[in-house]
């Protein structure tokens, strides 16, 4: 089994799911749990709520805002478990349908 991150992309910063989308996401989450694919999931606050922290040179420096200005933002994510990419792609398709947004599927390094 390998883990994958499914990042939910949106062009509205801090966009929220509609009640219909939220209900579909709940159904999808239950299915992930029932079939043993569930690891973790969460929605993210707007990028403007982010703080960039850099402690590489000793004293941490805090900077307001996202580290990248971009048109699209990650507004939520799932971490799933799947045996291989074909299985993960199916789950990502289900996730994309449920939240009505594009998803970036990316493997977690397994070492």
């Amino acid at each position: 089994m390998a883990q994958y991150v499914m990042s939910v992309l949106d062009d509205v910063a801090g966009g929220r799911a509609t009640p219909e989308e939220a209900a579909a996401i709940d159904v999808f989450n239950e299915e992930l749990q029932a079939k043993g694919h569930w690891v973790f999931a969460g929605g993210l606050a707007a990028p403007s709520a982010a703080t960039v922290v850099d402690a590489r040179d000793g004293e941490p420096v805090f900077t307001d805002g996202p580290y990248l200005e971009s048109k699209e933002h990650i507004i939520g994510f799932w971490i799933i478990e799947a045996p291989h990419l074909d299985a993960a792609l199916r789950l990502a398709a289900g996730g994309s349908k449920s939240c009505n947004r594009r998803i970036e599927l990316r493997p977690v390094l397994s070492e």
Partner: peptide
């Protein structure tokens, strides 16, 4: 290798 693309025939539906 990294994304674990399977070495095989796809799901029947696919």
């Amino acid at each position: 290798k990294d994304a674990r693309i399977p070495y095989g025939v796809p799901y029947r539906e696919d």
